[in-house]
Amino acid sequence: MYRLIVPALLTLTACAPESPASGRMLFADKCVVCHGTTGRGDGPLAAQLDPAPADLTKIAERRGGVWPQLEVMGIVDGYSKRYLPGSDMPIYDEFVSGPLVSFDTGNGLRSRTPAPLFGIARYLETLQDPAPTRRVP
């Protein structure tokens, strides 16, 4: 019986709404068309966009090796775009809806955020090349 339960629990954990695996699925569904399958900004529509889509694999490198979790979530959720227009990046309501998850914002306090938004940010962190040397909220 345990041979059935443990794999099932591992599968559920890997597909949890806030997991990098769920973020990978959202990325494939919404972001690949512009950012490409590897996140380097070379998707099928990239050549038609001005400015060109960002290379998402270099977010941490552009910040001296630091992974900026909240900054990334703020870009992905479209909050800043509503007030600072200037890119063709669409706002996806799916990223800011659904169940909420709690995460440490870096100051010892826990904050609740939509699981899809947190999942896609966690997935983008896995794309970093080179990997981040430290993280900030």
Rank of each mutant, 00 (worst) to 15 (best):
M1A: 12
C31A: 11
A8F: 13
L56F: 01
A54L: 09
L84D: 09
V72N: 05
R82N: 11
T133Y: 10
D77E: 07
T113Y: 15
T37Q: 15
F95G: 02
A16N: 03
C34I: 08
L4K: 04
V76Q: 07
M73D: 07
P99W: 00
P17V: 02
D55K: 00
T38H: 09
L12N: 05
D93E: 07
D77Q: 01
V101D: 01
R62H: 11
G86R: 01
G36E: 07
D29F: 05
Y83H: 14
L124V: 15
D50K: 13
D93N: 05
S97H: 05
D93V: 04
P130I: 15
V66M: 05
L49S: 11
L56D: 02
P20T: 07
P17A: 04
D50W: 12
T113W: 15
I91L: 06
T113C: 12
Q48S: 14
L9F: 07
Y2C: 14
I91V: 11
E71M: 04
R40K: 15
F27H: 03
E71N: 12
P17R: 01
E61G: 04
G65K: 01
R3I: 13
L4R: 06
C31E: 03
G39P: 02
E125K: 12
P137C: 14
A60S: 11
G78E: 07
P17Q: 08
F118V: 14
V72M: 02
G39M: 03
A21S: 14
A14H: 03
P130D: 14
D42F: 00
I120F: 04
L70Q: 14
P90D: 09
R82G: 15
Y83G: 14
L56K: 00
A60G: 06
R135G: 08
P85Q: 03
Y83A: 15
P90Y: 00
Y79K: 08
A60I: 06
P137F: 15
M25S: 13
K30F: 06
P51V: 07
A47S: 15
P44T: 12
I59P: 00
R63V: 10
P53G: 00
P85Y: 10
Y79R: 07
T57F: 00
P116A: 05
V6P: 02
D77T: 01
D42G: 06
A8C: 09
P132H: 14
A21P: 13
E125P: 06
